[in-house]
Design a binder for these strands. Sequence first.
DNA 1: TGCATTTGACCATA
DNA 2: TATGGTCAAATGCA
Length: 316
Amino acid sequence: MEAAAGGGGWDLNSLVAVLTQGEAQLRQLCECMAARSPAEQEKQLVLRAQSCFQTAICMAKAADSDLFQAAAAAAAAAAAASPRSNSGCSANSERALKEQQRKEMCKKRKTLRKWTSRVRVLGSSNGHDDGFNWRKYGKKDILGAKYPRAYFRCTFRNAAGCPAMKQVQRSDDDPFAIDVTYRGDHTCLQSKRPQPGAGAPPALSSEPAEQKQQLLHSLQTSLKVETEGFSSDDQNHNCFSFSSTPASGGVSPPFVSPTTTPESSSFWLSSDFGDLFSAVTPANDYSSYTDFILDSAGFAAASLFDASAFFHDSEI
DNA sequence: TGCATTTGACCATA
DNA sequence: TATGGTCAAATGCA
């Protein structure tokens, strides 16, 4: 796919190629370092640099996707519609651009992957967090539904062109259940895990390891995810997975034991955890701290949460 | 002051 | 034409 990134004489494929080359060289450096048993700090630096490269590659690839193309096409269309200077017709071209983007959005909405999850939050009804940063952009009363539907899009939609969106609606029949409909996969590779000592609550960071194990055990027994719209051969993806590298795919952590049926599974967040997290975190920010707890207890870094790894190929 | 949320209006679709 | 989905100005909050 040839995606001109403006009139600068380069395209995104070239950018991806350069970044990939950089990452490969970094990997070589890593191998060289391994031969002379480097210090832990050096290893961490290389790993972080590698992670940066991988993120940049993914972002470049994301920018190469439809949204970017749509924006470029819209800009081109607007420019073609107003051949005179931008200064004279900026309002018109801006309107044309928005009109074009809206049409592209409507087209894209039909093609975006879509899947639904039902999440139960016992003892707390203040929302749902799935590890991503979402920005609310609308709320709508739905005919026949007791509760309004909230609309969210990925916080990094503008920054990284991430097309992911979700709709959240409280279930009519079960006030503790919320139905979450996702559209599109994240391309932004968000990292939400709070850094120890940089925002992590002292109460948790100073907990004894035994207590953390108990928390994990409690989490294991009280977490249940309910999803809909999965094909029967996708059971492997019906659970949360935390991976240390974005491309490594889902590795099911030992604490998740989803009670899946071919078509549905469900999450339950117990009131214990709701209370615990609400006591130490901003509202709706539980997952950051599950990540933190897991990491503290010795699990692999849970810095990335790839929805496509969890809810795979489940178009409705 | 910057960012997130709210909310009324607008638009596309069935 | 009713309804769902999105936009963007207004508002609130840290």
